[in-house]
């Protein structure tokens, strides 16, 4: 999928949690992505989208990755 679009979507979610402190915003963004994104969207964003992300969205994707690996384990 178009990585720019995926990154845009992740950044947009993070931006809408912008009134929260960064750590809380990252947590909410991660929760949202886990709840609503198809695995390939998450996989591709983790694989090649991280440099395109805002700090909050990036932190969120790292939490998403951690949640996935703990579930896999």
């Amino acid at each position: 999928m178009d990585i720019d679009r995926l990154a845009y979507m992740a950044n947009q979610i993070a931006r809408n949690f912008g009134t929260l402190p960064d750590d809380k915003a990252a947590q909410e963004t991660a929760r949202h992505i886990i709840a609503f994104w198809d695995p390939r969207m998450i996989g591709q964003t983790l694989e090649s989208g991280l440099p395109l992300l805002s700090p909050v969205a990036r932190a969120a994707m790292e939490q998403v990755a951690a949640a996935r690996s703990s579930r896999a384990a």
Binding site: M1, D2, R5, D38, R40, M41
Partner: peptide, 10 residues
């Protein structure tokens, strides 16, 4: 997302 994913063959 389905339409996006169609373009990359998945």
């Amino acid at each position: 997302n389905m339409l996006d994913a169609a373009l990359d063959g998945s």
